[in-house]
Every structure is written in C-alpha cells, then in structure tokens.
C-alpha cells in the first residue's frame, strides 16, 4: 500500500461551519462592508465566530475577515449574518463616496475650534 502524504488541511468541511447553509440570509454584507464587534466572545461559541469577534475589535472589511479566516466570502457572510442577528456585531458601509457635501459646514468647525481653545 502506498503511503499517502500527510494531510495539512483542516478536517472541518464548510457545510459544517455554516450548518448546511450555502447562502447568506440577507444581502447586508458585501466585500467592503466594515464590521465592528459589539461584545466579547462568550464560551461555547463557534470558533469562527470567536475569531471574527476578535478580528472586529477594530473595524475590518468582510474580505479581510475572509482572508484572515481563510474561508470563502460566502461562508464569512453567513457567519457574519449570524453574529449580526444576535447583535454581536454592527456593520456599516465605508463612506468613501462622501466628500465635501457631507462635511460639516465651516461655521460649525469654527465653533468647535473656539470651544477647544477656550478649554
């Protein structure tokens, strides 16, 4: 019998990670959605959830989580959906498109500056 090469991967199959789901319930997450964790991991949580919560202590994009966890984006979105539905994370889109129009007007900024100087 030929010796097989030793396995280097993980024994987990992706359908066991997602519990059999192959599609995220909502379309809330795209690749660049920023995710922030709202709580610390609790015991008994799935290890992927734990790692996501730890990664999301600072805002991080979905695609980055996917790369860190070495999981397909689809799976990450399903996992994020779980966390979002239980309120453990919040998600927001990066506001790259907003520029001048969204900035507060100069009078407000001046007031803030004045207040800071008066401290």
């Amino acid at each position: 019998m030929t010796r097989r090469p030793v396995d280097l991967g993980d024994p987990d199959r992706l359908y066991t990670v997602t519990g059999g789901r192959s599609r995220a319930d909502d379309e809330k997450f795209d690749l660049v959605t920023l995710v922030v964790s709202e709580c610390r991991p609790s015991p008994g949580m799935q290890s992927e959830h734990v790692r996501i919560l730890e990664l999301c202590e600072r805002p991080i994009a979905v695609v980055e989580i996917s790369a860190e966890l070495r999981l397909p984006v689809t799976v990450v979105r399903i996992l994020l959906g779980d966390l979002l539905s239980t309120g453990r994370i919040t998600a927001r889109h990066p506001r790259a498109g907003r520029s001048l129009v969204d900035l507060p007007d100069s009078s407000l900024l001046e007031e803030v500056l004045l207040g800071l100087r008066n401290l």
């Binding site: 097989r4 024994p11 199959r13 359908y15 066991t16 990670v17 290890s47």
Partner: peptide, 25 residues
C-alpha cells in the same frame, strides 16, 4: 483515508465527524 500531522482541536474533531454523516444538521 487521512493522517494529520498536527493536533486537531476538539471543535474540528467534532465537526469533521459530524460532516461525514447524512443527518449532520
């Protein structure tokens, strides 16, 4: 069929086991 060269955490063991049966859900 496989041989692992590293320790496998219990969660992966359980998921690796449950993934092999039909009624894993």
């Amino acid at each position: 069929s496989r041989a692992w060269n590293k320790p496998i955490v219990m969660e992966s063991i359980l998921r690796g086991a449950v993934g092999r049966i039909a009624a894993y859900q």
